[in-house]
Design a protein around this nucleic acid. Structure first.
Lengths: 126, 126
DNA sequence: AGTTGTACCATCACAACACATGGTACATGT
DNA sequence: ACATGTACCATGTGTTGTGATGGTACAACT
């Protein structure tokens, strides 16, 4: 599989990686069971840090696109194609958009929403 | 009415102002119709910028605690006491908490939620 | 002339966070 | 020995948002 990373792209490196793997799955360039390069190997090939590649793999596994089997390596998930077309990100945006719109409609300031949001994210239940 | 502002308090100055006015209303030290100092006057008394005081007044008016009548000055809102006990902030927190919890339960990263949130706040509909 | 709230313009310091980097270490297997 | 994914430690850079400051100007009214 061919992966090309653009350093000058404002899109984060790990995001580029995630996107390209999902695209490869959708285009059937990667089929279930196919082995992916090891984290260190891919990091070396793309001249980037292994932690960055690991981050991309972590997300891909959470999304059900790949399966990591420890020392055995990483492989394409059996239902990778289904899982990589389901857009978890779209649901995230619409969900957030609905609540934020509801709050804004009440006259609450953007600042207030942002502050309350960060408090909620830090589990400061006030 | 007595207002005391603490510069060393981590709580923002305009927030201290808003809180103290609401408290004064709840303690009936300020009654509907009472006149408040002008923005510039209060800013001068408290040795702070008029824009900061204006910010506090803007919020107080939105919350229905005060009424600004342009050149005539600023007065306590007829239903100030009711409006200053109603906690708009609590509803804000619970609402945000519900959606965030729902998102987190789906395995979405805190980072991803934060990023999507700021995109939504900036009206970047992706 | 003076005062009211308000709306722009702008700047600065400070904190929080994202991204990427690097090093070290571990259990699990070949 | 060697490689797998993973989990810690840490640092630096850049961006973003906040809070507060300041200046200027306006319409409406006393």
């Amino acid at each position: 599989m061919e992966i090309s990373i653009d350093i000058d792209d404002p899109v984060p490196l790990f995001t580029q990686l995630v996107t390209q793997v999902k695209q490869a799955v959708n285009q059937e360039k990667l089929a279930p069971g196919d082995a992916l390069p090891s984290i260190r190997q891919l990091a070396n090939d793309l001249t980037m840090n292994s932690k960055t590649v690991a981050k991309a793999y972590r997300i891909l596994e959470r999304d059900g696109v790949i399966q990591t089997r420890g020392y055995r390596g990483t492989f394409i998930h059996p239902e990778a194609k289904t899982n990589s077309t389901v857009d978890l990100n779209e649901w995230l945006h619409t969900t957030l958009n609905e609540t934020v719109s509801k709050l804004k409609a009440s006259g609450i300031t953007d600042s207030e929403i942002r502050i309350a949001f960060s408090q909620v994210m830090n589990n400061n239940h006030n």
